[in-house]
Design a protein around this nucleic acid. Structure first.
Length: 506
RNA sequence: GGCCUUUUCGUCUAUCGGUUAGGACGAGAGAUUUUCAUUCUCUAAAGAGGGGUUCGAUUCCCCUAGAGGCUACCA
């Protein structure tokens, strides 16, 4: 086989918001494509007309835009192999359905869903396959005339693959090695439904991957059991020599308990399982998203990249470019990864520190606006510089800085009990006089030295003075350096806060 | 039930037959900080069980168990 340009695809079904596991699958596809100088396609697999959800497609596109994952071809960007929505490719699939039937690898089946349901109930482990298909109502058991008559009469039929029995089908998986399944356990899967004139996933997937010249199929492990069917389809269609390589990714599991990660886990444990906030168009239910929860896209990408892959050394923090350089399929792990969002938070803290004070200040602006607070931008940057390292999410900014914008309305009991001494009022009254003598509060270092000297000259306990002072300014025993605080709130406000505290605190 | 995959600290993982089994998150303890937080240091913490193969198995093979997936006219 000649060397082909690497082409991979992400092919979600627009049945709702994109699950974080899907995001990881796409990320791995992206990293693999970029690493190998290849291309990534976005294909929308909307062959299930029943489960189509409006808005899901736009959501998917927006989510990857936010994450910095770009597509070279597909829905939203176009390309020479379109259309990229399977619902718009009906006529293409029909050609191959016909080819499969004519070559004897598929057949018409007229069994109704009710009949099949009845068989499943009556016969344990019933499956439509080489052992049972001759009892079905299909083009194998009906005369050609009868088949034609039924089709002409508009009877709803499906087309099923005719799996040849007693054959070991081999899937050479890039992650798991050779996986062999005997064709006897495969059933004659439905490939096409006359009811909506659409193929099922299996056929559409193979036809599109072939036509779009996909070289590597990187997808979740849930597809491993049907991979042999796909191999068979490539063979029956005569495309075995250009069949893509498969790589089945380990699944993302719940943080605790059993099963794979689901929407409910997020709701229950209080972390998002979707990249973006999603509002269900039918029910109006809201599902939280990483973006709206204050996660940085590079943190989400970094966290996800390491869930099932590692570079083989101790490095933990990677830029997208580094991930691209380092990524390789043979370092993908085989077992499912439990989703640990504490680590995700840690990544967010790391990446937030990498952002400049100006950038973080900009994240703070809408929060302040919401609080009805006005603040000059350069002052905001100054404030952010004092508290940035303390926070993991921009949403924590207000709690860390509210005292810069408004005087404390109450004084924390615990702090008072621990830090407010009997001599505090007297010390503070004298401190006010000292502060009054300072003209420029922006001389942080000098002012501190001045106060320190004064405390020493009076023989006061430094901790008592400073902690009491802090409580009057902040309302509690917390916050950044005191002399930065008074620089920001200014002389008048500083003195006013001390005086007010002196009145209120008994 | 059947079939497939998988199994190293609580979690994510390193180790490609010979290591004091390493790192990170989280946890605990100290230090720094006149406050709180940050930061730093240290500590505890793992090869599912049983058989083989081998001079030697976490590593290779088999069995059992656990975990996960699939078993639709869904993807």
């Amino acid at each position: 086989m000649a060397e082909r340009k690497v082409r991979v695809r992400f092919a979600p079904s627009p049945t709702g918001p994109l699950h974080i596991g899907g995001v990881r699958t796409c990320l791995y596809n992206y990293l693999f494509a970029k690493k190998n100088g290849g291309e990534l396609l976005l294909r929308i697999e909307d062959t299930d007309s029943q489960r189509f959800v409006p808005g899901a497609e736009d959501y998917i596109i927006e989510a990857f835009k936010w994450l910095g994952i770009t597509f070279d071809e597909g829905v939203g960007v176009g390309g020479p192999n379109g259309p990229y929505r399977q619902s718009e490719r009906r006529e293409i699939y029909k050609i191959y359905v016909k080819q499969l039937i004519e070559s004897g690898h598929a057949y018409y089946a007229f069994d109704t869903p009710e009949e099949l349901e009845a068989k499943r109930n009556a016969i344990p482990n019933f499956q439509y396959d080489s052992h049972t298909r001759m009892q079905g109502v299909n083009s194998l058991t009906l005369s050609a005339d009868e088949v034609n008559r039924r089709i002409a009469a508009g009877e709803k039929y499906v087309v099923r693959i005719k799996v040849e029995p007693d054959e070991d089908v081999e899937v050479d998986d890039l992650v798991r090695g050779k996986v062999v399944i005997n064709s006897n356990i495969l059933d004659d899967k439905v490939l096409y439904k006359a009811a909506d004139e659409l193929p099922t996933y299996h056929l559409a997937n193979i036809v599109d991957d072939h036509l779009m010249e996909i070289t590597h199929v990187i997808r979740g492990e849930e597809w491993l059991p049907s991979a042999p069917l796909h191999v068979l389809l490539y063979r029956y269609l005569g495309w075995a020599d250009t069949m893509p390589r498969f790589a089945h990714l380990p699944l993302l599991l719940k943080p605790e308990g059993n099963g794979k990660l689901s929407k409910r886990d997020g709701d229950k444990l209080g972390f998002p399982v979707f990249p973006l906030l999603w509002k269900d168009p039918k029910t109006g239910d809201i599902s939280s998203g990483y973006r709206e929860s204050g996660y940085l896209p590079e943190a989400v990408v970094n966290f996800l990249a390491l869930l099932g892959w590692n570079p083989g050394n101790d490095q933990e923090v990677f830029s997208m470019d580094e991930l691209i350089q380092l990524f390789s399929i043979d370092r993908i792990s085989k077992s499912g990864a439990r989703f640990n969002f504490e680590k995700c938070k840690w990544f967010n803290h790391e990446y937030l520190q990498k952002r400049s004070d100006e950038e973080v200040a900009r994240m703070f602006e809408p929060i302040l606006k919401d609080k009805g607070v006005q603040c000059p931008f350069d002052k905001l940057v100054y404030i952010v510089s004092l508290v940035k390292e303390r926070i993991t999410f921009p949403s924590e900014l207000w709690d860390q800085t509210d005292f810069f914008f408004q005087a404390p309305t109450a004084y924390d009991e615990k702090s008072l009990k621990k830090r407010w001494k009997e001599e505090s009022p007297q010390c503070l009254r004298e401190l006010v006089e000292v502060l009054k003598g300072i003209d420029d509060f922006s001389k942080v270092v000098e002012n501190e030295q001045l106060v320190l000297d004064w405390v020493a000259s009076k023989g006061y306990n430094l901790g008592t003075v400073m902690n009491s002072f802090r409580i009057t300014l902040v309302g509690a025993a917390k916050g950044p350096h005191i002399f930065n605080i008074i620089d920001i709130i200014g002389k008048d406000e500083t003195i006013a806060r001390v005086n007010r505290a002196l009145e209120v605190i008994k």
